[in-house]
Design a protein around this nucleic acid. Structure first.
Lengths: 253, 253
DNA sequence: AAAAAGCTTTGATATGAATCAGAAAGCGAT
DNA sequence: ATCGCTTTCTGATTCATATCAAAGCTTTTT
């Protein structure tokens, strides 16, 4: 396949495809009428795939688009003053990346592919303009941003209050839920990130992540084979996370 | 003053006041034309003050409004499965609380007054409707939410990567910046939250917060008198934080 | 004004997770 | 296959911060 052909394939032929996209029920088109999906479609560009390690955008660059992940996984991260990376999120198919750039018109984080990844680019000025004419799109955008805020706050609870076991269990359960939402197995999946990246994200050392995962396996909560994870004992994992299934025990003072 | 009078005072007489509000340049009216401010004004209710410890809303309640703080301070928090409180944010005058409720139509956190606090209630359905007609209001809303997302991500970096000294220094500098923005002293201010609440927010034990603050005072970085804080050595505090202000520009390593 | 209840501080001790170190297992490139 | 390079795992040790305990302070209540 020639380079030109590839260009064509991803920039022209594939436009106008939200309706055929298996993710449309989770992504922005959710709850849009057909004709509105078409309008949205027209402002979206399907970009050619990013290879593992490639940047989608870099911290400090001018913001102009948000991106919906179509396949693969991204991570977003900050570079701290000491030059270390701090991962602030992982993004799976149907999820929107780049929303934090709206405020200052600059991406405050970098986004990098963890594996071969394709995204839909949605120029924000067009999206904003379009949202004026399509109330349900505007509402959807508000909802996506609001959800991001509450998810991040959950993450703050995790980082501030949980121990290593609880952090890892939460992480696994969170991924499980995201796979499930897309129709994949909730109990069996592949981690696209390294142990190091998990630790970085959870505020733990690599060694701690490794030890916790090993121990979870020993205690038959999960089965691990490299990056393949199978959750065997859901109730126990949920108990670690603190899923409010047995609130009865909790005394309200 | 009778109860009725009080009601009147806060529900009717004070409407249509955004233009006179000293916070309008920081709050939602920012960058709105005069006639648009009036429209916004009409959907806003000034509520009567909350006393210290009173709830603005509770986790789980139906979401219908966002609130702008006019005076005083609020905290938002989750109750974890163990019944402990995890504080997710402090809100100062001009700041918007409740945005995380949009997604599920339920407040995912509780909001409580740390001192006598007044707020403007902004019914979200009206705000959303109004934003359709006032593009700059919609843009402003997107920006506020986007900023919240990037602020929370900074907080994740703090919780995940920083030690006790860096956490407390970041906290103080953050407050300092927020006071400064409203035209108050950046170096001298009063903490409206207890040491316990600071620790809870930063993922530290009370004792640790107390010790760090005492040590900062011994090293003449700050001067402390109960809840009164004076930052004496800004450069040193900034060094501890890692001068995150122009971190974005340094980023490319 | 006294008593009670809550905060804040300080010191002593315990501990969970980081760090250090090295072996084993994957993986990509030649 | 084989060589390097990265990732993962495991054990030993260290350290920052939590926890425990108790004494001053504040603020609120009576």
């Amino acid at each position: 396949m020639s380079a030109t052909h590839t260009q064509t394939r991803f920039n022209s032929t594939l436009t106008s495809q939200c309706q055929n996209c298996s993710l449309s029920a989770l992504c922005l088109p959710l709850a849009l009428a057909d004709e509105d999906i078409n309008k949205l479609d027209q402002i979206i560009e399907r970009k050619k795939p990013l290879k593992k390690g490639e940047f989608l955008f870099r911290q400090g660059e001018t913001f102009d688009s948000v991106f919906a992940v179509r396949s693969g996984t991204l991570k977003t991260f900050n570079i701290t003053s000491l030059g270390e990376e701090q991962i602030t999120g992982f993004y799976c198919p149907s999820e929107l990346v780049g929303l934090s750039g709206i405020d200052e018109n600059i991406y405050p984080v970098s986004a990098k592919a963890l594996e071969t990844t394709t995204v839909c680019e949605i120029p924000f000025s067009h999206l904003e303009e379009l949202s004026s004419h399509i109330p349900s799109l505007k509402r959807q955008l508000f909802k996506v941003m609001s959800r991001k805020i509450s998810d991040d706050q959950q993450m703050m609870v995790l980082l501030g209050k949980k121990n290593a076991d609880e952090k890892v269990a939460s992480f696994l359960l969170n991924l499980s839920n995201r796979f499930k939402k897309r129709g994949y197995s909730a109990s069996s999946f592949r981690l696209s990130m390294s142990r190091g990246e998990i630790g970085n994200y959870l505020g733990l050392a690599v060694e701690t992540v490794s030890r916790v995962i090993t121990r979870f396996q020993k205690n038959e909560l999960i089965h691990v084979d490299g990056k393949e994870i199978e959750i065997i004992n859901f109730p126990e994992i949920q108990k670690l996370v603190g899923v409010a299934s047995d609130c009865g025990k909790i005394a309200h003072i």
